[in-house]
């Protein structure tokens, strides 16, 4: 089975409590790792939680690029016969970043400056990834469709959605 093709996969429902808890973990991660910001990114490039400065406050471009780079490097390693993948780092002149695995679906991006050691960021990333994993795993399952407060709108979904223009050209 090709691990990269979109297999029918389940959506991610993130409730408020989980979102807040993930953010708390990232805040602690930034403090521990002496990082300027950190983000939990889903493999499709969506930022699921964010802490620190506003470096990642764009429309998702940076996260999409980070996810692409991460998967490309991991796949390169796999093709070269290396199955272990601990993440990747970029060292610039002033700003540096580390991308590390959380689980098969999420990655952790940490941005840091010159006063911070990469080794510390790596170590903290491993520890924070475990916390993020636990937090994601502890999330209660989403309510079954009928119990969902939104389910009552179900009736004419096809009808309404069938005529919606999600985007209008200017």
């Amino acid at each position: 089975m090709d691990p990269f093709f979109p297999a029918p996969s389940s959506p991610l429902f993130m409730d408020r409590e989980t979102a807040a808890a993930l953010r708390q973990i990232l805040v602690a991660h930034c403090n521990d790792a002496d990082a300027s910001c950190a983000a939990l990114i889903e493999e499709s490039g969506t930022v699921c939680a964010l802490a620190g400065d506003d470096s990642l406050h764009d429309h998702g471009e940076t996260a999409a690029l980070a996810a692409g780079a991460y998967h490309a490097v991991r796949e390169t390693a796999r093709r070269l016969g290396e199955s272990a993948f601990e993440g990747l780092s970029h060292e610039g002149r002033h700003k540096h970043f580390h991308l590390g695995p959380v689980d098969s679906r999420f990655l952790l991006l940490t941005v840091f400056g010159n006063d911070t050691r990469l080794a510390l960021v790596r170590a903290c990333s491993t520890r924070s990834a475990a916390r993020l994993r636990d937090c994601l795993a502890a999330q209660p399952p989403p309510p079954p469709p009928r119990a969902s407060p939104l389910a009552r709108h179900r009736l004419n979904a096809e009808e309404v959605l069938g005529t919606t223009d999600f985007f209008r050209e200017r």
């Binding site: 959506p11 429902f13 989403p142 469709p145 009928r146 969902s148 939104l150 389910a151 009552r152 709108h153 179900r154 009736l155 004419n156 979904a157 096809e158 009808e159 309404v160 959605l161 069938g162 919606t164 999600f166 985007f167």
Partner: peptide
Amino acid sequence: LARLVVSRFHSLHARVPASL
């Protein structure tokens, strides 16, 4: 495509309502 994707999500999970 957006209609198909949102409709499908809705019919599977009913978390996205039809009222827009």
